[in-house]
Design a binder for these strands. Sequence first.
DNA 1: AAGGCCTGCAACCGCAGCGTT
DNA 2: GAACGCTGCGGTTGCAGGCCT
Length: 264
Amino acid sequence: MEYSGVNYDHMMTSLSDCGSPYGSEEEMVIKKGPWTEEEDSLLFNYITAHGEGHWNSVARFAGLKRTGKSCRLRWLNYLRPNVRRGNITLQEQLLILDLHCRWGNRWSKIAQYLPGRTDNEIKNYWRTRVVKQAKQLKCDVNSKQFRDALRFVWMPRLIERIQASSQSDSNTNPTFFASPHVQASSISDSAISYNSYDLISGGGSGSCSSTSAENGYGSGLSSGSNQHVESDIQPLEQVGNGFGEADLWTDENIWFLQQQLADH
DNA sequence: AAGGCCTGCAACCGCAGCGTT
DNA sequence: GAACGCTGCGGTTGCAGGCCT
């Protein structure tokens, strides 16, 4: 954790300005801006002892001069156990693209299928990477043109790279997709029964999967060392060796995409 | 070295949905 | 059923650090 040491005391707002969860006998002042280590500690200890929920009470009884919403956000996006930080892996990128194709900007729903990732992180990824590339390609991120580019060009390339990486890793990391820590049943939307296998084999229910099957981008992961038994698989649990943000948005790929778009 | 620009991310804001009174 | 409060979601903003000139 890093704290800048900057005094954020100036970022205080009277609770009377924004709907106070506190008593009105005295004007409570809430703090805004980055969280301090001490605040994190207070929040973590309180939730560890009392559990999540009732966020306004958390804010009040933990001794935090924060709104309930702020406490909730800090917990969910940062303090919560199993929150994964750091680079979005290739597999995660692929999954985000696929799920966004199904559901659009339903970030929290998408986040359900990326263990340890928060909706905020996924949203930031989408905006800072994908939207940026759409701009670079001079098309709207929601346009059919760009969606087709993602579906028919980008995702197959991602799969190729994942496949190549998994093959090169198979000696050192033969259990890439198998995680004993989180059960697939933890995924609430059982209608889709989502995992990487579904994604690459076209087994999902969304339009992308069917089209992806047609276009053959499902040729990859189910083969080789990563083949797995369905029920054992946790989607995209990271083992963490070498799938950092090896970004696909290289000049070469952008050029390729532009050619594909020009052909349409 | 310094200033400006760019990027990524943490956090805030507004709104909608839901439950309770 | 209206009013209110709480929670969660998606959009947006602002800051810190890196990069470039």
